[in-house]
Computed example of a mutant assay.
Amino acid sequence: MNGRRTDAGAAVAGLFARSTATGGLATREPAPAPSSMSASRTLRQCVELLEEEVSYLRGLSRPDRTGQPRSHGSKFVATGVLMAAVELLSEVEVDMWGVEAGDVEAMKARARAALIAAGARQSEAER
């Protein structure tokens, strides 16, 4: 049993010894933040999405939608969507009262209602 643990430990350690195993995140120097984003805004958030949600985002990033030679990738599109949602939500009240940790459906419903309110407010302001 001890040999197996040593082998497993070496395997896990090996993942972080090669930059390709983690997409380079383990050993790569942090990329400079885009000029529109300050260094203090470069925190990573992990969000779990359903496959159909990822497929939708991937579809938005395709060259036939963007006019670019390569796909932008679903993570890039998701980042933009999330940043826009956070910006809109910061302009309205998000009712979080009673939402329990882990209740994604309740959180989604509250965020959706707040985004709709923000969109309505923005439409009125543009008139």
Rank of each mutant, 00 (worst) to 15 (best):
S123T: 12
R110N: 10
R58H: 03
K108T: 14
A31S: 10
D64E: 02
D7Q: 15
S36Y: 12
V92Y: 03
A17G: 14
G59E: 01
L88M: 10
L43F: 11
G73V: 01
A109K: 14
V94W: 02
K108P: 10
M37W: 08
A11S: 15
N2P: 05
R121C: 07
E105I: 13
G24F: 15
M83V: 07
S71K: 00
A85H: 11
T42S: 12
L88I: 03
G98E: 05
S61T: 00
G102I: 02
G73L: 01
A85S: 09
A118T: 03
A117M: 05
A113V: 07
M107H: 10
E100F: 02
V12L: 14
A117L: 06
M107N: 08
R70H: 00
R41K: 09
R18M: 15
A10W: 09
A21C: 15
A111G: 04
P69T: 00
S38F: 05
N2R: 08
L89W: 05
T22N: 13
F76Q: 07
R127Q: 11
E126T: 12
P69H: 00
M1Q: 06
A117Y: 03
L115E: 08
S123E: 12
E105G: 11
R5L: 13
A39E: 13
V54T: 03
L57G: 01
N2C: 07
R65L: 04
T27P: 09
P63G: 00
E93I: 00
L50P: 04
A17N: 14
G98A: 06
A8N: 14
G9W: 07
E126M: 12
N2S: 11
E124C: 11
L49E: 03
L49S: 02
T42M: 13
G59Q: 01
D7W: 15
V104K: 12
E124Q: 12
F16P: 09
W97K: 02
M83I: 04
A84K: 10
S36V: 08
E87W: 06
C46V: 10
L15Q: 11
A21K: 15
E93W: 02
L115P: 08
M83R: 08
G23F: 14
T20C: 15
A31L: 11
G119S: 11
L15C: 13
S74V: 02
A114H: 04
T27N: 12
E52R: 15
A8Y: 13
G9K: 10
A10K: 14
A21L: 15
M1K: 06
L89F: 04
T22G: 13
T6Q: 14
V86H: 04
A120N: 08
C46Q: 09
H72L: 04
V77T: 06
E87Q: 09
A39H: 08
S61V: 00
I116G: 02
A118F: 06
S90W: 03
L57H: 03
P34V: 01
L89G: 03
R110K: 12
L88P: 04
G98L: 06
L49N: 02
E29K: 12
